[in-house]
Computed example of a mutant assay.
Amino acid sequence: MADRLQRVNGTAVLICAPDGAKLSGERDALDIIGEAGYQGADWVAIPVSRFDDDFFRLRTRIAGEIIQKFANYRLGVAVVGDISRHTAAGSALRDFVREANQGTQVWFVSTLEDLYDRLGGGRRAGSGPGVD
């Protein structure tokens, strides 16, 4: 499965394939940001499976570095999937997720459907030229 662009309520979202390269640092984030820019995306949805486990250990600062790159390029980023095994390990990540989900730049969602709801479009709202 390849990355694909979808429009949700007028927002272009790059949906990353679950089997792509792991994100373990800034360089990996820049690869996705470059693809998002090329595709014209406003948001990027990245499955949990694409993140190195160190992303979820806040003391490594990898999450901060990756998220900051998306913010620098004014791209929203959604981490999509079940992160309960990571949040069960301590309160710092739970607090971070709760705070992120109150903002407008970074969201942790269980499913793509949850992301679509947050973007105000419910199910995939349609497609346009070059959009699956």
Rank of each mutant, 00 (worst) to 15 (best):
D3K: 02
L5W: 04
R7Q: 01
R7I: 03
R7G: 02
R7V: 01
R7M: 05
V8K: 00
N9R: 12
T11P: 05
A12Y: 05
A12L: 12
C16P: 04
A17I: 02
A17Y: 01
D19H: 11
D19C: 12
A21Y: 11
A21V: 15
A21D: 15
K22I: 07
L23N: 01
G25I: 00
E26A: 04
E26L: 05
E26G: 07
R27C: 05
D28Y: 04
A29S: 01
I32N: 01
G34K: 12
G34L: 07
G34A: 14
G37Y: 08
G40L: 06
A41V: 02
A41H: 04
D42W: 00
A45D: 06
A45Y: 00
I46P: 02
V48Q: 12
S49G: 10
S49M: 07
R50L: 05
R50M: 09
R50K: 11
F51Q: 01
D52N: 14
D53M: 11
D54P: 03
D54M: 13
F55H: 02
F56W: 15
F56E: 04
L58E: 09
R59H: 14
R59S: 15
T60G: 10
T60S: 15
T60D: 09
I62A: 03
G64D: 10
G64F: 13
G64S: 10
E65W: 10
E65I: 09
E65F: 08
E65K: 06
I66H: 00
I66Q: 02
I66W: 03
I66C: 01
K69L: 09
A71M: 08
N72Y: 05
N72D: 05
R74S: 11
R74A: 13
G76A: 08
V80P: 00
G81D: 07
G81I: 01
G81E: 05
D82H: 06
D82Y: 10
S84P: 03
S84Y: 08
S84H: 11
R85V: 14
R85T: 13
H86G: 07
T87S: 15
A88F: 12
A88W: 06
A89E: 13
A89N: 08
G90W: 10
A92K: 09
A92Y: 10
L93F: 14
D95M: 11
F96N: 02
V97R: 01
E99K: 08
A100R: 01
A100E: 02
Q102T: 07
G103D: 03
T104W: 09
T104C: 07
V106T: 12
W107C: 04
F108L: 07
F108K: 03
S110H: 13
L112T: 10
L112Q: 12
E113P: 05
D114P: 03
D114L: 07
D114C: 07
Y116F: 15
D117S: 06
R118E: 11
G120L: 03
G121K: 04
G121H: 12
G122T: 10
R123F: 12
R124N: 13
A125E: 11
S127P: 08
G128H: 14
G130S: 15
V131R: 12
D132H: 15
D132I: 15
